[in-house]
Amino acid sequence: MTPAHSPDAADAPAVSTVVEFRGGSAMIPASRDVVQGFVARLADAGVSTADTFLDAARLVASELVTNALRHAPGPCRLELTLVEGGVEIAVSDTGQDFPTFLPSDPLRVGRHGLEIVTRLCDEVITKPHTTGKTVSARLPLR
């Protein structure tokens, strides 16, 4: 496995992007486009990813943005950051309620987004802030 960056943090490629969305359903496909551009920048920086990484990252971002659209009033912010061994995909919104992680249920129709995100990512963390919350998911590069 090729590390995302060298042991010397000063030599690590700094790759990140932030996009503010005003709202509306167009931000869901737009989030997938942002991820596509970000992953291209990773490749340009020499960061190696699994063959499935792009699809997984697009899915995680669109699920988190969809949750922000459905459960929080106002705009949201998508931030993608290269971190040790992965990419942190963070969505900040104006909602005060934390996401509800439901147990796996193959008979349930819908509401599988966070279940999918938690299966793909190493960790999912929700942090409150003064104007809402940020849900961060760390997706491994390999």
Rank of each mutant, 00 (worst) to 15 (best):
A10D: 13
R32V: 09
A30E: 14
A9T: 11
R77V: 14
S136N: 01
D8F: 08
S62D: 05
T130S: 15
K127G: 00
R108I: 14
G24Q: 04
T134F: 08
L82M: 07
T134W: 10
E84K: 09
P140W: 13
A40Y: 02
D55F: 00
T126A: 13
V39H: 07
V35W: 08
S25K: 07
R108L: 12
R41M: 04
A72T: 08
G95F: 04
P29W: 01
V47S: 12
A50T: 01
D44P: 00
T131V: 08
A45D: 12
A72C: 04
Q96H: 12
H129P: 04
R22P: 04
V87L: 05
T126E: 08
P106R: 11
L54H: 05
R70P: 02
A50M: 06
V60G: 10
G74E: 10
L54E: 13
Q96F: 06
V87E: 03
A40D: 10
R142K: 10
S92G: 13
C76F: 00
S62E: 06
D51F: 10
R41K: 11
G132V: 03
A43L: 02
S136G: 00
M27D: 14
G132P: 06
L80D: 04
T126Y: 05
S6Y: 00
S25C: 06
T49G: 03
P106Q: 09
A56Y: 03
A30M: 11
V60P: 12
S31K: 07
T131Y: 07
D11F: 10
A57E: 05
A45W: 08
V47Q: 06
V117S: 06
R111Y: 08
D105C: 11
S92W: 02
A14H: 13
L78K: 07
P29G: 06
I28N: 01
V19N: 00
L141I: 12
V60H: 13
G46E: 05
S92P: 00
P75G: 15
T118P: 01
D105V: 08
K133F: 01
V124E: 11
L114E: 08
P7Y: 10
A61N: 05
H129Y: 03
G24P: 14
N67D: 11
I116R: 04
V19G: 00
D55C: 02
L82R: 02
A9Y: 11
F21A: 11
P73M: 00
G85Q: 00
A68H: 06
V109M: 07
A14P: 00
T100W: 00
L114N: 12
G23I: 03
E123T: 12
T131N: 15
R41V: 01
T126H: 01
V117Q: 05
A50F: 01
S104C: 01
V87W: 06
V109Y: 04
A40I: 02
P73W: 06
T134K: 10
T52A: 13
R142E: 09
D105T: 11
G85N: 06
H71P: 00
A45K: 09
V60N: 10
M27Q: 15
V109N: 05
A50K: 07
A72S: 15
G95S: 05
P75Y: 04
D97A: 15
V65T: 08
L69F: 13
S25R: 14
G85S: 02
F21W: 01
T100R: 06
E79Y: 03
A61S: 14
D33K: 13
S31V: 07
F101E: 10
